[in-house]
Every structure is written in C-alpha cells, then in structure tokens.
Write a protein that binds this DNA or RNA. Structure first.
Lengths: 236, 236
DNA sequence: ATCAAAGAAATCGTACATTGTTTATAGGAG
DNA sequence: CTCCTATAAACAATGTACGATTTCTTTGAT
C-alpha cells in the first residue's frame, strides 16, 4: 500500500472523529503527549489558565481538550476542582488489558473467517518488518505491532469494539513506551505472531482466538511486571 | 437496604464522577432525557445557542454537556459543524450488546465466586419484586432488572468493565423504553433469572457465565427485532 | 497547636468578537 | 428556460476576555 518505512500507527478507519475544534484537537495532542512522555507527572494538577498561557490560546479550547482527555482516561476531572493527570497505575492497566482479553478474541475470530489473500499478505509483510527490526528500535516495534493488529481489527463490523480496542491500545502503548521487552517476551511475541498467521491461513478461527487471548494476557502481564519492578525499585 | 419501592436504578459505585460543572451536569441530564424520551429526533441538529437560550444558560455549559453526551454515544460532534442527535440504529445496538455478551459473562463469573449470603438475598428480593410486577409497569421492570444486574457487577474489581457495562445498559434502556416485551421474552427473562440465582447459590461460575451470555444475547436480539418491526412498519 | 476568617487562586458562567459553514441569490453559459 | 457557478449574506461554531463563585492557602487570635 505504501513504502515500507512509513509506519505511524493509525486508528482503524471509520472511528468517531474526535469531535474537537482545531485548537482543542491540537491541545489535546500536545497535552496527551506531555502525559505520555512523562513531562507531566502523575496526579499533577492541570490548571486551565496555565495551559492556556503556555500554549498561547484562551481557556475554552483547553477545557475542551481536558474533556477529551478525560474521555480517553488520561485525566480526571472533578467539578470546581479542575483536572489532574490520571496516574496510570497497575489497577488501571489490569482493567483495560482484561477487557482486551475479552474483546480481542472475538474480533480475531471474525477476522479469520473474513481474511482475504491481501490481508494475509499484509500481515506477513508487517511481521517481516517486525522481525527485521527485532526490537532494536522499540518505538518502531510498538508502531509495527499496532499496525499488525490493526490489520485484523480494521474492517470489523463492530466499530465500537474496534474503537474500544484502539483507545485501550493507546493507553497501553503510553505505559509500555518506557519499558524494554524481556527476552522471554520478545520470543513469545514473535512466535505467537507467526502461529497466528498460520491459524489465519488455515482458517482456524477458534485456535486463533485462543491464541490472541493468551497473547493479550501475556502482554498485559508483561507490562504489569515492569510496573511492579519499577515501583519496587522506587520504594526500595 | 432501603424500602422495597424506591427503585431508581443507580450506577455501580466508584465509577468516574461525570466531571462536569453543576450547570453542565444538569444540562447533560436534560438533553439526555430529551434524546431518550424522543423529544429530540434522531439526527436532529443541536444548536448550541438554541440550547443555551432554551435552558437559560450561556453557551459554555452547553458545550460541556454536548461533549459528555458525545462520550456516552448519544451525540455526534463534527468540528465546525456542531452536534447532532445520534441515531440509535440497529448497528449501534448490535455493537454494544455484542460487547455486553463478551464482558458480562466475565463479570458474572467473578461474582459467583465472590457472592455473599447478603448478595444472594438481595438478588432474590429483587427477583421477587420483578415477579410481583410481572411486566405490568414496564418502566418499573426496567429499573428492577437493572438493579438485579447491578447487584452482580457492583463490586467487581474491574471498574472500567463495570462502567462500560453501565453506559451500554443506559443506551439499551433508552431504546427499549419504547417497546413492550413479547410473551416469549418475558418467560425467558424470568426463568433465566431464576436459573441464574440457582447457579449462584450452587457456585457454578461457568454455568452462570454461559447463561448470562445467552441472557444478554437474547435481550439484544429482542431489541433488534422490535427495531426491525418498527422500521418495517414505518417503511411499509 | 487549633480553628476561623480573610485573602489568593482557580474554576465556572456570561458576553462578545472572530472564523468558518451553509444558504440564498444573481449572473452567465448551454 | 434550465442548470450550473460564483458571490454575498445569514447563521452557527469557535475563540477571547472578564466578572462571579467556589475552593485552597495563609494569617492571626484564642
């Protein structure tokens, strides 16, 4: 479809346009990135006037952006008390990956039954890039991995489920960006992807679904382990 | 816990406070009710200035309310083009009840393993009220039925999943409010609830989970059938 | 040291200016 | 005469500024 190098993970098509004004949308991006990249600490207060001044707008677009961020789960909002950066703690991560474990197998099952030759080729192409990269560039891996799963869920008729998956994915990517993959996890990812492609080719919907459940479960556990390790280091 | 008559369905506790200012929150309620009760037609434009005038506020709280409603799925927002009442069509309903079929069994399974004597007593009490009412007052049935399931999901550790369930439930209630229950569906609801209680008492988590999957599936299909019938009547 | 009250700070609501979109109208080509 | 296009005017969303209200902080008295 495009050159082999332009992987900027994109949401599945047909998903609700974010619905923010131009300023609101760009502020949303900026603040969101600040949270994801850790420039805004957990629980830090987000003062509307500050943000407005810092980004050179007035307060209304900021309020809008904060509402959006609240919807995505990055920010908590309390009436008359303003916004705070939501601490993405272990409970939060567990909650959303568990939902993934429930939803993704269903999406996968449908994909296996509907996959075209082109879909499979695309999966194999991306998997090739993933293996070429071999976790050397972890950011690139994250983008490619997301693209891999997007191929599968993109065309699903249940747009809500796909959208839910995408939102959760974004949060998990935000957290895992700061971690490295353990060797065990690397091996599991590669082999599970390969196995998955085999199941898709063979039309084994149930096996693929079970595999994805394990895959998502493993991914979630991996992130949680990292978080625990970090917290322990911090405490000790 | 309270008198037997005060059933106003309430969201599971600990769920994200809505995060709107007082005016915004009340506007949210008002507009939402207007949509649910059909006073605002599908696809109708929601003009900020009009809404502000009609409800005697300025525009900012209205914008806030619309953002919230967008988050709940009741409204679509397009930049520079404003808001519209989202048509709750068959695809929409199918999407969210299918997600329910995936999530609710997991919530149920956990509940069965954690249910206390009091929980079970509460379930039986509500089921008694449901049977007393016997669909005479459909609104009351809806409230009771929601309360029944809330007992099960209320204490679940996964607040995101519970919240998701609640939001979806609200939408489905909004749609089904205008329909009556078929005799077949009435029978199914009563017997499935009774069977569910039996499974909970016996600690049969898997059976309960499977049953809930069927229960949600049946409920979803029932709503869809009604919608199809109505649309057919409208077209023909 | 505790509590109350005054002051500071930030959110919330209102009014207005600006920008973008839609609609109606006039002009011209076929 | 009809259809298309270009243009202007009405309309509504977006952005800005500011005053009102609530919450948080600090100060001072008991």
């Amino acid at each position: 479809m495009a050159g082999t190098n332009d992987f900027k993970a994109k949401p599945p098509e047909g998903i609700d346009a974010i619905g923010a004004s131009s300023e609101g949308a760009s502020l949303y991006q900026l603040i969101r990135d600040d949270i994801i990249e850790g420039r805004l600490a957990a629980n830090e207060r987000l003062v509307v006037t500050d943000l407005a001044r810092r980004h050179g707008t007035s307060t209304n677009p900021v309020r809008e952006a904060l509402q959006l961020l609240r919807g995505e789960g990055f920010v908590t909002l309390v009436p008359n008390r303003g916004a705070r950066v939501r601490p993405i703690d272990q409970d939060f991560v567990r909650d959303i990956y568990e939902i993934g474990v429930l939803i993704e197998p269903a999406l996968t099952r449908w994909f296996v039954n509907m996959a075209t030759v082109e879909d499979i080729a695309e999966l194999e192409r991306i998997q090739g890039l993933i293996e070429d990269n071999n976790f050397a560039d972890t950011f690139r891996h994250s983008e490619l991995d997301t693209a891999f799963h997007t191929v599968m869920y993109q065309k699903h008729y249940n747009r809500h489920a796909a959208e839910l998956w995408w939102k959760h994915r974004e949060v998990l990517r935000a957290v895992s960006r700061r971690f490295n993959f353990t060797l065990a996890r690397r091996a599991a990812i590669l082999s599970e992807h390969r196995e998955l492609i085999a199941h898709v080719k063979a039309g084994n919907a149930n096996e693929a679904a079970e595999l994805i459940a394990r895959h998502v479960e493993g991914s979630g556990r991996h992130i949680l382990e990292h978080m625990r390790a970090r917290n322990a280091a911090r405490a000790g």
